[in-house]
Nucleic acid binder design. Structure first.
Lengths: 329, 329
DNA sequence: CTGAAAGCGCTTACAG
DNA sequence: CTGAAAGCGCTTACAG
């Protein structure tokens, strides 16, 4: 590695002080024309780049935001991360990512170690005391926890579950199954409660099977469903992955989708449209969630961390595809 | 936000110097027992946490590694990122992510701004001059560019393409189609050349359609394939997404998979196993690639950046599922 | 074992 | 318009 060039090297070559080099680079209008040119020439000659870490320390900022998500390998997050990164980059901020389940001590440190200016949290399952102890602006995306002292940006999960039920009821289904998300997860709870409220309102029979958002849990639920005497003809899954697991396993068991059973997912992941049969699902605007969330956090950074805006809800809608159809006779 | 606590605050409360506080925290064995306890008490009372940004500046390191990938919303990367993050976290390093197509100037800065100790590069399409100008250890993962002066960790893409051809030939297919990746991409080129070599060796008819790894490109290729007079009965796609797009569109056009056409993908993404029909594909061990790559880069950091190890190849293998079967008569 | 001082590489009031 | 000096929050030879 060639040795790094510092501002003092540039200053020496240009024959000026480091203060002048600094100004020539950050506020060129406050430097004389000749001096500025001498400095820029020295910068070009050396290939000097500002050491952002040193600048940020001096300016008492970190120059970056941190994304915390419960499982980085979950493909649901990809588009959200991409949108956040774009917004951050436009604002001159670096994006850090970490799994939010890295352990209490490491997690506690993240909010105090001077390496991030703010946190985007996609995990509602952390200890509120820990989260509220962070001395940084925090925004919650998708998942949330009412005990966190931080604004939330998410879709109305309960209402969205209602859309799924209405859709199935409109197709004549009178007996619905919900495969829920993991116990204790706020999305799981909200979607299930929305389902139960909607079936109650519509006077439709219903059942709930446990699940955990994964394809495997959907496949397991398919076996349990197949073994029932009186099988529900419509299934609302708490996630697209769960729905894909359910459908693929139901087909392997010899059932037809949507001939024998209609299935609705949640999320509208990339593959929903290309799955066979293509998946009727609730569209979550992940790009918009990431983008808006990042913009909001960035706003909080310049506004001194005061979360002025209220919780913000983004519209979710139903996308009708092939996995749902009229109830069988 | 409550004001941040500095090491000098702790020192004042404990009645010692900041040097002693620093030692009590980083090398406690070099501090007297009583002193150490006084310091730790003050740390607990204040909730002090070391400012990692200041520590790192003093120690002339960044304490983080940077992942650069051409498209963060590509779900292929998720598991790789997760593995990298785990390894980095174990080594006390933060993980930064950025899209590698953020623009030449920003990209150039990343290798010089003191915010990263090393770079994991998943993009073989950047300007070599720019990449080689970075004053940081770099490792290439999955994609590579021979003009980059950095070690590579990837699978043998050409040999893997050969496995796909052998598999189809073994099922009796005598006319194969390859849907390639984007022009100029090293993975696309290597997989295509591996395909062409294998069909040549086996004396099998072949054709190549253009594509770009996406589901849309697979769907477009399906239309083009369907319009042929003498349709190839076996298709090797440069990615799973492309294969999924091809199959879903072929089915919509009324064909049966694998009855009318067998399809092989590349990557073995999570959905390959649950797609309908489940997808025969080349398994890329993404977890291992991420983990090994991170370990290697971390090794380079402590070894003063000298890339001692040679390029490293990870084994890929064929996973046989339902999307391939005997050639139709 | 402990402290005073220097320094990581910058920026920014403060003078002039 | 420019420079000398202080300081961001730490760590680490150097003394004692």
């Amino acid at each position: 590695m060639t040795p790094k060039i510092r501002i003092s090297d540039v200053a020496a070559i240009a024959g000026v002080s480091t203060a002048t080099v600094s100004r020539a680079l950050s506020t060129p209008e406050r430097v004389g024309k000749d001096t500025r040119e001498k400095v820029l020439k020295a910068v070009r000659a050396t290939g000097y780049r500002i050491n952002a870490a040193a600048r940020d320390l001096r300016q008492r900022r970190a120059g970056s935001i941190l994304i915390l998500a419960p499982n980085l390998s979950n493909t649901f997050f990809s588009r959200i991360f991409a949108a956040i990164q774009e917004e951050a980059s436009a604002a001159g901020l670096i994006v850090q990512i970490s799994d939010s389940r890295i352990g209490r001590e490491k997690l506690a440190t993240l909010g105090h170690d001077g390496r991030a200016d703010g946190i985007i949290l996609l995990d509602g399952g952390l200890d509120p005391e820990l989260v509220n102890g962070w001395r940084l602006p925090v925004i919650q995306l998708c998942e949330w926890n009412a005990a966190y002292d931080a604004p939330v940006l998410t879709v109305d999960n309960s209402a969205a579950a209602g859309l799924a039920v209405e859709h199935l009821a409109g197709l004549g289904h009178r007996n619905l199954l919900h495969i829920e998300g993991p116990e204790g997860n706020v999305l799981a709870t909200t979607r299930r409660d929305g389902f139960l409220k909607a079936v109650g309102d519509a006077g439709i029979d219903s059942a709930v099977f446990e699940g955990d958002f994964t394809m495997e849990s959907g496949a397991r639920a398919a076996h349990r469903w197949a073994a029932l005497d009186r099988r529900p003809t419509g299934v609302f899954c708490a996630s697209d992955e769960c729905a894909i697991g359910f459908i693929s396993e139901a087909i392997r068991l010899g059932f037809d989708v949507p001939g024998d059973v209609s299935v609705v997912g949640f999320d509208d992941i990339e593959f929903a449209d290309r799955f066979n049969p293509s998946l009727t699902t609730i569209h979550q605007p992940r790009e918009a969630i990431g983008r808006t969330g990042a913009q909001y956090l960035i706003g909080m950074l310049s506004d001194d961390g005061t979360p002025t805006a209220p919780d913000y809800s983004i519209a979710a809608h139903l996308v009708t595809r092939v996995s749902t159809g009229p109830a069988p006779q």
